[in-house]
Design a protein around this nucleic acid. Structure first.
Lengths: 204, 204
DNA sequence: TAAGGATGCGAGCTATCACTCACATTAGCA
DNA sequence: TGCTAATGTGAGTGATAGCTCGCATCCTTA
């Protein structure tokens, strides 16, 4: 009864001009996704928007989910790269500087493609699409590691809870600012307030 | 070309045993939604799960969206009621008590049906379904009003920004705690930390 | 320039979707 | 008890979804 939509594995995308096709498909996926959202997006629409036949789409992506997941992974990798990079830079900075640097980087990361980011949040957490949540998990770990390095200077007893609170707060502020109040990023007020919030909480 | 799925207005649900049908449908909607998510939920599945014919479903709900929106509005009203009630209780409490009371109430509100709440977050913001975001907007307003009443005692210059930060933080903590770390709610540690975070930020 | 693999195509398949409608059943009131 | 409005039914409709497959075209290599 209705076998799972099994799909054979697809060609590796990479050889000459086929990469163009794949890029066009991913670009179109992003556009359709942003316009229609996940459940109104269809693979036929994507192929049409990409100027590519539906057959070619399925040559490289075995399913709608795989198509969106690939795009999501690209997005997530971009964000992760920024975080990882900043984590290194920040490692031996004093707390106040470090917090500010991380807040700024997180905002930057959210500015990569805020609308697409928002769409991903509303995608069903199925199969590979679950990976979206892992960005925040990794960010939490980085914050935890940073805090652990200077735990004797910090007030909160539980670093797990503190790291969670701090990482989630930064994520929440960045997300909200970029999507709902971009004007608050012009002057530095929101950033200052956020840094303040976090420092007052952390410092002994 | 493909007229919008116009649907005639439906019977008012209320008269005798028909209310049972409506309740069964909304209950089934919640179950299917939680199991499958919005885009894999179908009206046929809901009718089946409710033990009601598909015809009856459309007698009371003109569309899939209306079905989900009705359920969402019920959920949102429940949460709003808790907030509004607490806002009154808290109005002339001192800051520390008030913050703690609000945090506790927000957690309580998120415990109404956390999984359903999560599903609503991932529903496309279309038509009546946009109303989901308004809960937080109303919560922000309540916090802003509370803070305005004692603004001379507070450190942050911008009450808009502060109220936003505070309301969003409380929402984020409650949401995360209920879904990802329910064990942290056993002892009061997370609540204490959150109250601390907010008070240190607000107090001069 | 011939051959063959890589790439591209799109009509069309099956399943499922949201939704309708002609009809059956029930319930309350005369 | 009989009549009528309210309620319930589910086979069926057209649309569209995800996805396949046989074939055309391009590109590389020899």
């Amino acid at each position: 009864m209705s076998a799972r939509p099994r799909t054979t594995t697809r060609k590796k995308p990479t050889q000459a001009r086929s990469q163009q096709t794949v890029d066009a498909l991913l670009g179109a996926t992003a556009r359709v996704l942003k316009k229609d959202g996940y459940d109104r997006m269809s693979t036929n629409k994507v192929a049409l928007a990409a100027g590519v036949s539906i057959g070619s789409l399925y040559q490289y992506f075995p399913s709608k989910e795989a198509l969106v997941a690939t795009l999501m992974e690209r997005h997530v990798d971009e964000m992760d790269a920024l975080f990882a990079q900043e984590a290194v830079r920040v490692a031996d900075m004093p707390l106040a500087q470090a917090v500010r640097a991380i807040v700024l980087r997180t905002i930057e990361a959210h500015q990569i493609d805020p609308v697409l980011h928002r769409v991903f949040e509303q995608v069903p957490r199925i199969g590979r699409l679950q990976k979206f949540d892992e960005v925040q998990e990794r960010a939490r770990v980085l914050v935890f590691l940073y805090l652990s390095a200077s735990k004797e200077k910090l007030r909160p007893k539980s670093l797990e809870v503190a790291a969670d609170l701090v990482a989630s707060t930064i994520e929440m502020v960045s997300h909200g600012a970029v999507l709902r109040h971009p004007e608050r990023l012009r002057d530095g007020v929101l950033v200052d307030e956020t840094v303040d919030l976090i420092l007052r909480y952390l410092k002994a």
